[in-house]
Design a protein around this nucleic acid. Structure first.
Lengths: 324, 324
DNA sequence: CTGAAAGCGCTAACAC
DNA sequence: GTGTTAGCGCTTTCAG
């Protein structure tokens, strides 16, 4: 690796001159144009690459952000969005996986003197284990305390939009088919709100993914116009149950998922769903920490709201009944 | 951030002593046990965190690996595997996205003096643009030249295993339904090999994903026992076409996918497929660059071979005919 | 056991 | 315009 001193010697100037030219600060020391050009050319010719690590050490400021996460297929697209956004602001993302010990991961980030820490997709239990001493280091972080770092996505409102879409299709007898996870319940609230506003009765069936086969029978007894699922997996699994019973969708009833996972575009029939844009959310999350780093503390970020993506599993009630 | 000198002053010893103790080299300078303990305790109490950046600068060796990639949902699980494996060897992964300019990404990696560069999931055209001067820096890299950095996965052999599985089920009239991509053709070769070994006639239908609706009719005319698809998407899309035609699977014919994407476990019926373990492959890729860094150059890594994952879309011929 | 000193590659203030 | 110098936080050698 060639260093500044090497090119200084080659050109026959001081290391300082090289430093200033290469950092675009040559105005502060009126060097002659030819010299400036020669320094640049020589640097290029010798293949000089500045050492960012040293810069970080000297300036005491890095442009690396640690993303601490329990990675899963689920969260990967958000990381993707985060990385893409980071590169625009000339930040680099370092990935630090967490299995059991979150403090180990945080320590690793601090060892590298990262500019900021971004924790994402960690269970509350892990967050509770965070050693509070780390906050003394003054490293801006998001997601290391219980109420920060949530996905910037409004689950309830998005689910409500989903229900309203079903309503707009003429469905009235809508059952919400969901799991008992926190996130599922937030979505359930959206359903409740939309139904209540219309004065329609609530029908909620809670199920774990493994119980879907049995719970499907329960669902069928309700003879719904439409069923709104708390996520795409349960929607797809429900469709699977319908298939084995030779119950056709959307002729028998409409199904709406939530999440817009890739499988929605590969199911038979294609699953209508509410989009949860992980990638976009990842980008917003980056901007959140970026603002934190720049000191532009905006306290309230706009939460993203998902759009309904109509595909083949939802159809107007009239049309459905006609086919029945 | 507290420094070594701070804890040295606190304890009343030399900075050298602190350095040696904290790096576990105190044997080289026989310090008294109480002093050693006091240094450790003080470091802990004051919240000392070593500065890895400086260490890198001083030692001229880092334990950071840059993963340069055009990230996509596809490749994310491989990254995941890579990160998980890296952490075991105490390496950190830095993500550097590439859109158009690969040299910019490489430069960024070199600026940070990474220990190695790992390029993955980049089109050949991008690889061709790599400025050869970068190789002078002697940074170990994989995937920056046309014939390195391929996924360590044997497409052909895996596909062949798939065909053999179909054969073992009693199917003879097997058609290969695939796209014209390079990877699809490798898999096609596996199919050909298995069929040829049995002296069975080859039936291959090439299709792009958009053409699947029309090509399905062609497929149907062949009246196959089983169809082997070049990837899960086309298998799933084929199932979608069958659904709209009310052709039931696996009663009419068996379908085998390739890839084992998450959607396989969410389709109706669940798709049997050949597993392409991206996550595992990512881990192997890390080990590859790790060996390169450690100087243990093994020239030939074992290519992974996928296993058949039987689910609901494949069934023995006898059983199928019985139901027909 | 310790303190001094050189070195890693670079920035930035300063006197010349 | 330049060379010197101090400093960033640390490792490592070496004479005491």
């Amino acid at each position: 690796m060639i260093r500044m001193i090497d090119i200084a010697r080659e050109v026959g100037v001081s290391r300082t001159a090289v430093s200033f030219v290469l950092n675009g600060k040559h105005k502060e020391m009126r060097l002659s144009e030819p010299i400036i050009r020669k320094i640049r050319e020589t640097a290029e010719r010798m293949g000089y690459v500045p050492n960012e690590l040293v810069n970080t050490v000297v300036k005491g400021k890095s442009n690396v952000i640690a993303v601490i996460s329990k990675f899963s297929d689920f969260i990967l697209p958000a990381i993707h969005g985060c990385v893409d956004e980071a590169v625009k602001y000339d930040y680099i993302i370092k990935l630090i996986p967490v299995e059991k010990n979150i403090n180990e991961a945080i320590l690793k980030a601090i060892k590298f003197r990262v500019a900021g820490i971004f924790a994402i997709s960690l269970e509350p239990e892990l967050i509770d284990q965070v050693d509070s001493k780390f906050f003394n280091y003054g490293i801006p972080s998001i997601g290391l305390t219980p109420h920060t770092g949530r996905m910037m996505f409004d689950q309830q409102k998005s689910a409500q939009k989903g229900t309203e879409y079903l309503l707009s299709l003429g469905h009235r007898n809508i059952v919400f088919f969901g799991t008992s996870s926190d996130i599922s319940q937030e979505r359930e609230e959206g359903y409740k709100k939309a139904m209540t506003e219309k004065g329609l009765p609530l029908q909620i069936i809670r199920t774990e993914e493994e119980e879907i086969p049995e719970k499907t029978d329960l669902l069928l007894q309700a003879d719904p116009d439409a069923v709104q699922c708390s996520n795409d997996s349960v929607a797809l699994l429900l469709m699977h149950e319908c298939y084995s019973r030779r119950i056709f969708i959307p002729e028998t009833f409409s199904i709406l998922g939530f999440g817009n996972i890739p499988a929605c575009r590969l199911s038979a029939p294609f699953l209508s769903t509410v989009d949860e844009p992980y990638y976009q959310t990842g980008r917003i999350m980056f901007r959140q920490i970026y603002d934190l780093l720049s000191g532009n503390q905006k306290e309230n970020y706009e939460y993203l709201c998902g759009d309904v993506i109509p595909r083949e599993t939802t159809v107007a009630l009239k049309q459905q009944k006609g086919e029945k």
